[in-house]
Design a binder for these strands. Structure first.
Lengths: 339, 339
DNA sequence: CTGTTAGCGCATTCAG
DNA sequence: CTGAATGCGCTAACAG
């Protein structure tokens, strides 16, 4: 690889100073049009592109944001990431993608790395509720927003759905379909979002005078394989639930997988409801009943707010905390229970 | 935000020079252990983290690679991205994710941006077969590898499956299941990979003495909605195919969606086979018959080779061109055709 | 309107 | 084994 062409080379060729080159690169308005053109043609002829690294060092801005998420293969995350990266491109930002596999150790490591890379801001889509690094950054005034994640403490910006209500909607739906034995794939309560869903689930049960069967509750890690095994095992018991509420569509898919593996048909013998409304849920071959999260809107909002924090980080008086409303979409995987 | 702590601050606190701090940061071996400790504790106490931007400028390495792909919501890409990012983290590289939505304009823009950001290398997972920028970069000796993408010309490194054979396997399978009317969701021939699959498809047809019905071929963009509409329309005709071969599982899903929408049951009335073997294909609720790509292996290889190019880019004598073998996995969406 | 100058925070010679 | 000096390629005052 031959040596890079610098702004000095361009300056020399155009017969101007390097700072003039810098000015045209930055669209400085008060310039003689002829010199701008001279520089522009020199840039063209040399095939010059500016070194963003040097630019970042000098300007203290990288126009890069970090996006940390739990699992990019979960459509909820990839669909969100798609919106965020598109929007970012429109706003002239790049995104560094970090996949934690739901491990807090990875999360902290990635935060560290991203800070080292001097990103202008960070979006975190899977944060443990008591993570200290996030709190520290927030308190320092660093632009950081949680996407569908909430902290125990109030030291954070977040944009999320009303998870409590979402869970209630799910239980209501199942109850009205005559289900009394509901298995709940909750996920670990180290996330506030799942914690809130758990609360919503329990309160809804109470409301309908239903008792909770601890054996029907899965509260371990978000792992497709583990949930699959859990569901399969449950479905093989004498006394088994008539329905499942999974706190993500991905996990609902694992339940469907398990049901198919033991020959239980959905929705005739088992109802399944998810959470997220991933694109696949709409697929009529599957038709997953689920709770919508307004992903697109959430993702757009998150990026807009983040860029807002980055570009005018004066008034960080109150945290940004937005909660959107979920909705139930009934499709083919839930049906009326007939004993 | 208070001012950053620099290596000078650390140096001062430790009573050494900045270059010494730099040495411990870079694990320079020939140092007095006591000074190293002094520096280390100073770093600890100050909570110093080095500025990777400055480091990059000085060292001319960013330890960042660009990953350009067509659509992160297509599981084939997100599953590949997951492997690549994990592997990258292990090798101490970061990845900037770029989503082109299959537009060459975006592709070129992203390549430009990434070069500006001084990434050490680029992986491209959706490249138009005659893209000039890729050729230029390759010819300059810049580390760049195509992932499951091939160029018309030979100026490129790539790692891909034998797409030609994959398509043949699919047709063979369908043929042995008595299907004679096969619709093929090909995708645009601007990609060599799809072009090769098209060839494989046609040759297999010839081999079995089958005629190709042009109306059964979809050769436009990879768009879920368009494929859905195409398939739905076809399935509503008097004369309709008895089977579909889709050149990605994502598109196969669109076909299943369309079939469900018109009440055609799979595999009784219609067989569907995909390509990629995304995780979801294994889901027994769906059970998509498909052609495997050894994603994991391909992704690992790609990153290893790329890092190889980056870190020892002396012997770039011959291009890296690796072709892996696909395999057919028969599941539930294909069955024997009974007229 | 444009040139000069001084950093940005490190890595990297070169001395010692 | 360690310090001083220089520069990576650009931005951002400050002059003029």
């Amino acid at each position: 690889m031959k040596d890079r062409i610098s702004a000095y080379d361009v300056a020399e060729k155009a017969g101007v100073s390097q700072s003039t080159v810098s000015r045209v690169l930055n669209n400085y308005p008060f310039m003689k049009e002829t010199t701008r053109q001279k520089v522009l043609t020199a840039i063209e002829e040399l095939g010059f592109t500016r070194d963003e690294i040097a630019r970042s060092l000098a300007s203290k801005k990288t126009r890069t944001i970090g996006l940390i998420l739990g699992d990019i293969t979960n459509p909820f995350f990839s669909e969100s990431a798609k919106v965020i990266t598109r929007k970012a491109q429109e706003m002239d930002y790049n995104v560094i993608l970090c996949n934690t596999n739901h491990s807090e150790e990875n999360l902290n490591k990635y935060i560290q790395t991203l800070m080292g890379k001097r990103v202008d801001g960070i979006i975190i889509a899977s944060a443990d509720k008591d993570n200290q690094k996030i709190k520290e950054l927030y308190d320092k005034g660093f632009p950081i927003i949680l996407y569908n994640s909430i902290m125990e403490h109030d030291h954070a910006n977040y944009i999320a759905v009303n998870n409590y209500k979402g869970a209630q909607l799910a239980v209501e739906h199942l109850y009205h379909f005559n289900h009394r034995e509901i298995s709940y794939i909750a996920g670990p309560s180290k996330y506030v979002t799942t914690h809130l869903r758990n609360l919503g689930f329990k309160d809804a049960l109470d409301k309908f005078g239903l008792k909770m069967n601890e054996k029907f509750i899965y509260d371990r890690e978000f792992s497709y394989d583990e949930v699959y095994l859990f569901a399969k095992n449950l479905l093989n018991q004498q006394i088994r639930p008539t329905s499942f509420f999974a706190s993500s569509d991905q996990m609902a898919l694992a339940v469907l997988d398990a049901a198919a593996s033991v020959g239980i048909s959905v929705p005739d013998q088992l109802s399944v409801i998810g959470f997220d409304d991933i694109d696949l849920a709409k697929n009529q071959f599957i038709g997953l009943t689920t709770i919508t999260q307004p992903k697109e809107k959430m993702a757009m909002l998150t990026l807009e707010k983040l860029v807002g924090l980055i570009e005018e980080k004066e008034h960080v008086d109150a945290p940004i905390q937005i909660v959107l409303e979920p909705e139930l979409i009934s499709r083919k995987t839930t049906g009326i229970y007939k004993p």
